[in-house]
Write a protein that binds this DNA or RNA. Structure first.
Lengths: 187, 187
DNA sequence: GGATCCGGCTAATGGCATTAGCTTTTGGGC
DNA sequence: GCCCAAAAGCTAATGCCATTAGCCGGATCC
């Protein structure tokens, strides 16, 4: 009974990600996706419930992409090396895809569709902190502090919020060091 | 020649801020502002160039409001006390106006209209760090680190990004302490 | 008292999301 | 080989929003 689809949900999301990369989140429009995929706008509704759901799919993609890259970056490392690698991988991802980062959902755990991907990302962070002997809520706090720093920096940098890009590498190194010192001090 | 205006740019921005507080940045629409101010949509163009400019005005308001509050919060304090007060004032502002915070421009220095307000805010931060004897680029880095932490936390908290609100006060205290320790260590 | 300017209005245009309903293609069961 | 159901695409229509053009009336300055 099924007809083989010329378009799939996955291809629609691909096109959406391209658009986000080029024009930012505001540029993600069903009309633009339709043009890019060579289809009439209403046809997209056969693959996606509506614009909000498409945004959700895009968010999942970003989360998965990040989790995958961070896992690779941290693989085989432990302690400070692992944490530093994770933090640098985070920044590198955002530098490569500044606009795309704007599509990362801030609260993936509150969305059924994004929950799994959000968990994966959080677990990479938690796992990276394993080995510091943090127990219970200490691990939660440490993960939150880490997230605050990487997201805070990435969010400002990706939106051109630091006046001059001058010395940004140094600033980031200082943040990494600050976080690690703090982690050690609290052990 | 002038006619006394029933509406002024300032009143339009007031209405815009109310809308942002209630519905978030996406809810800021000329049609909604017109309804709220009891005027037809096109009439707003007599007070504001277009939607983008209105957003700009809203951004300025937020920046000024923050700068004002932080100045008050830090007044009469110095050193760690001042920095802690600033950080807590930042969080308090965002907790009071979570949606409004989403309207704060991330790169005010790149916008002619917002530049002055952005400067004011940055200067409050810089001034708060005065007394740590930071010279030249050290002061820049310290300001950036501060901004990364307060914005990172505020941005995640205001969008409900921390799973449970449980223990968030502790997390924030730890961040304040981490920043201060770092500042002392580098002096 | 009259010219002028300003703030408001209505009408019109064009972009976008979304819905309804039609057409076509295709794969599976007979 | 043939029929049918379902999937995937399309066109038409609706409604919301931003923006522009052009009109109207009142207030102010002389």
């Amino acid at each position: 009974m099924p007809v083989r689809p010329g378009l799939t949900t996955s291809k629609v999301v691909d096109a959406a990600l391209e658009l986000v990369d080029e024009q930012g989140v505001e540029g993600l429009t069903l009309a633009a996706v339709a043009t890019r995929t060579g289809v009439a706008t209403p046809s997209l509704y056969k693959h996606v419930a509506n614009l909000a759901e498409l945004r959700g799919h895009v968010g999942v993609r970003v989360l998965e992409e990040m989790a995958g890259r961070f896992t690779t970056a941290v693989l085989g490392l432990a302690g400070d090396d692992a944490v530093a690698a994770l933090m640098h991988a985070y920044r590198a991802y955002v530098q490569e895809h500044p606009k795309r980062y704007g599509a990362m959902p801030m609260d993936p755990l509150h969305d059924e569709l994004q929950r799994a991907a959000g968990m994966k990302l959080m677990e990479v962070m938690l796992a990276t902190l394993r080995g510091y002997g943090l127990e219970g809520s200490e691990a939660v706090h440490a993960t939150r502090r880490l997230r605050v720093i990487v997201h805070g920096f990435a969010s400002i940098e990706s939106s051109g919020g630091f006046g001059l890009p001058e010395g940004l590498d140094d600033t980031y190194d200082q943040l990494v060091r600050m976080y690690l010192d703090d982690l050690r001090g609290k052990k």
